[in-house]
């Protein structure tokens, strides 16, 4: 997978050295040369080695060009879900998650002291504050140190452990780049949302998106969910109420 797959078209430039060689190849000039016998001996002695060197040089040049193109296209290092999750949960298989995007409205008013919101952060693996992706930033934002500012009390729930018990008393669920949510887990999330719970889906490497709404937002990393559609794919529609208002 690539961040900028279109740049891979730059691999066409690999043909450049070959084209330049063919275009600039001039016809050898004809010359009279009486001491040809020495040239013939030298030619037979060196031609194989020379050809080998030329091919090695061409291969190195092409490899350098290809490397530049691949670096520009930025390959994505997608972490593989562990085998236990893959075997036990059909939801672990890659599938389309249709997300209707809506801007995340964050209340400008400071949260009332004494009424912290309980949120569950669902993640494939343990969150770490040092992680550089979006989920890592969420972990940082929801850390106990930030509680006074955000008014949120986070609880980490691993995707494979998601069930009704874990969502009891929770006001909103953050799906932080979660891939391993089981079918039961999804049913639980749907039920939770139907009952008025908040859901924030954070896009990441494990979530493939298909933007359904007419606009894209700078905050498209956050989305509000709807219900699963009939076709089996998970279509989380935009909530009329404006999604998760925290």
């Amino acid at each position: 997978m690539w961040t900028h797959p279109l740049i891979l078209a730059g691999l066409v430039t690999l043909a450049l050295p070959v084209v330049i060689h063919l275009a600039l190849r001039s016809r050898p000039k004809e010359r009279t040369f009486p001491a040809l016998r020495f040239v013939t001996e030298s030619h037979h002695a060196t031609v194989k080695l020379t050809r080998l060197k030329h091919f090695a040089l061409l291969a190195l040049r092409l490899a350098a060009l290809a490397l530049v193109v691949l670096i520009l296209a930025r390959p994505i290092d997608r972490p593989q879900p562990n085998s236990a999750t893959r075997e036990n949960s059909p939801a672990a298989k890659p599938e389309n998650l249709h997300v209707a995007l809506a801007p995340l409205r964050v209340s400008s008013a400071r949260p009332a002291v004494g009424s912290p919101k309980q949120v569950a952060v669902v993640r494939t693996a343990e969150l770490s504050a040092g992680a550089s992706d979006a989920a890592g930033l969420v972990a940082l934002a929801l850390s106990p140190d930030s509680r006074a500012t955000t008014g949120l009390v986070p609880t980490l729930v691993l995707a494979r452990d998601l069930n009704a018990d874990r969502l009891k008393g929770v006001d909103a669920v953050f799906l932080a780049d979660a891939a391993g949510v089981s079918s039961e887990g999804w049913a639980e999330i749907e039920r939770f949302v139907s009952d008025g719970g908040g859901l924030v889906v954070l896009l990441g490497h494990n979530v493939e998106t298909e933007i359904k709404s007419g606009h894209s937002s700078e905050r498209s990393g956050a989305a509000t969910p709807g219900r699963r559609n009939r076709g089996g794919t998970r279509n989380l529609r935009r909530r009329a109420s404006g999604g998760a208002e925290l």
Partner: peptide, 9 residues
């Protein structure tokens, strides 16, 4: 540059 050499004899 590359040349095509010919022995005159």
């Amino acid at each position: 540059a590359p040349v095509c050499l010919e022995d005159p004899e």
